[in-house]
Design a protein around this nucleic acid. Structure first.
Lengths: 162, 162
DNA sequence: TTGCAGTGCGGCATTAAATGCCGCACTGCC
DNA sequence: GGCAGTGCGGCATTTAATGCCGCACTGCAA
């Protein structure tokens, strides 16, 4: 096997396959990567416990559930001391509508992704943050008009040369 | 059942559950939502064919596969005629390292998310785009230093009031 | 109010998949 | 050249996925 030193080609195939077909049966997966079911399952379990696979999920088409508003928000904190960042991160993590948080280099500190029911809802979330000392100095909102594509998989094979 | 008019509470439970545990067995799922396996599976299949569930995937821990660089890039096109947008979207969709594309309102046109092997790799991708007439007037890169969190599920229940 | 038709659920039998166990082949090390 | 460790395929057993069938509940109509 591998994992300790590095994953072998079969492990990468398994990851790539599961990434785009998370609910594939082990029998099909084993066939796709060229193994019999037993060792294939062993590898999957090992990839899971070793942390290469952190979980599985269904991709839900939010638009079919109603009208949703996605917003990317640039946030600049007022203070940049040790603790200001972690406190901010801890607090926003608890807000369900903030689905992504990225600390970036450049003109501002954080890029957040919101999914709200509409502009009113989004506005109320922002006001809540401004009024309750999250440490935000300023922010700027970019409302998503449409998302031509969101790939649910990274090019594992390509990034390695395969 | 529902779906035609609107999803009932059980359907939402199924979506919420599958979103965070895509590989749960139908037996467990049925138990979690309070149904027997048969009707539960029927609902899942219907949600899939009706387009509420667009697919399943494993969440891969890219950092364990090596050092990767995530970059958010703001792009402004030089021309904004009908066709300039669709042409740009079509072309960048073919670039594996661009995993998300959002058309936004505000100071620029597109917010792109890249996953590359490093700054050199990212730079080569950008140069490739600039040299080959993608219609880019200007761009700005925000390198992700760390992502405190990326939730792989939207608050389905909460957004509807549970 | 009583009967009829349509819809969705739970129970049961059958088929397929997930798991665990065992012996064999390949590789590195004595 | 023989021995120990690792990973694979095959096989038996336990579970889950599916498809079928009759029953209960709801709305509609006489």
């Amino acid at each position: 096997m591998a994992i300790g030193p590095k994953l072998d080609r079969i492990d990468l195939k398994i990851l790539a396959k599961l990434q785009e077909a998370g609910r594939i049966t082990n029998v099909e997966l084993s066939d796709a990567v060229g193994l019999s079911p037993s060792p294939c399952l062993t590898r999957v379990k090992r990839l899971e416990t070793a942390g290469y696979i952190t979980g599985y999920g269904a991709h839900i088409n939010l638009n079919k559930l109603g009208e949703f508003l996605t917003v990317f928000t640039e946030v600049t904190l007022g203070e940049h001391r040790r603790g200001d960042f972690s406190r901010f991160e801890t607090r926003i993590a608890k807000i369900d509508e903030i689905v992504e948080c990225h600390l970036v280099s450049g003109g501002y500190d954080y890029l957040l992704k919101f999914v709200a029911r509409g502009v009113t809802h989004y506005q109320s979330l922002i006001e809540e943050m401004l009024e309750n000392d999250y440490g935000i100095e300023k922010y700027f909102s970019y409302i998503v008009i449409k998302s031509p594509f969101i790939k649910h998989h990274f090019p594992i094979q390509n990034l390695f040369g395969e």
